[in-house]
Amino acid sequence: MKLAYRDALRQALIDAMREDPDIFAIGEEVGRYGGAYGVTKGLIEEFGAERLVDTPISEPAIVGAAVGAAMAGMRPVAELMYVDFVGMTMDQLCNQAAKIRYMFGGQIGVPMVLRTQGGIGRSAGAQHSQSLEAYVMHTPGLRLAMPGTVYDAYHLLRQALKQPDPVVFIEHKGLYAMSEEVDLSVPPPEWGKAVVRREGRDIVMVTYSRQIHYAMQAAEELAAEGIEATVIDLRTLNPLDFDTIRAAVEPIGKAMVISEAAMTAGVAAELAARITEECFDFLEDPVVRVAGEDIPISVSVELEKGSVPGPALVAQTARELVA
């Protein structure tokens, strides 16, 4: 069936909430309004205000309350309307949620999901367009999922809602309206496993979230020129499935990492470093980062678009690496 990314997320919440009475959503506008991007639209009619808890605009306390509720035995889905607001919640997320199991000697975990969304695409400006996954990936104790497809939007969220540890689940605002033909009844890959979206002999593209689509688009374009790319969708950044990356890079010897986030000290930097360390003897070229510029995002549509990689930059980089 044809399904939109947004609707797949909503369906995942509905199915999970029907199955597990301890799951509840908590955040700004999740109930009556139905979510800023419509993901929780209509849920309040089935599940009531007790399970779609509308909150005041208090991001730190939303995350903090979710931590307490998780410790008390429920499974909250806290929603942060934009990942840009994560700075407000850094203490509750990184000092509390991430460390509680460890600090307390394994006595208790914090099985919560923090749903949020990031990325460019809506001319939303410097404070509503960032890709801040590195903040999360840099904090031990947090799992991190970033679905790039409709199928993964559904299944990664279902899997996130079964994890024993806190999961930050970053959707992409540019994908909500994207529809794909999917069969949700196909069992998903194991949590934490990457998926090879396309196999090719000439270069490996490692990416996640919306950049999957740009990589695939570039790969199709390159195929017409006789360059065949492997495209790896990481799906989760923690756990990180490096085995899949290694298996693809070793026989080819050329790799690029594609990420929308600012390049310096970002996820792409970490992945490039790992590939270089682990696959050094197999590499023919430097592992190139195709990442966001180290600048804030503008409201101007043109400047916004120019701030992150697009299919053309991906394709051009691949051409040069393969040449």
Binding site: G64, A65, G68, A69, A72, M74, Q96
Partner: peptide
């Protein structure tokens, strides 16, 4: 502090 809000919600 906010954890008690969540625990009390439960």
């Amino acid at each position: 502090i906010p954890a008690v809000v969540g625990a009390a919600l439960v």
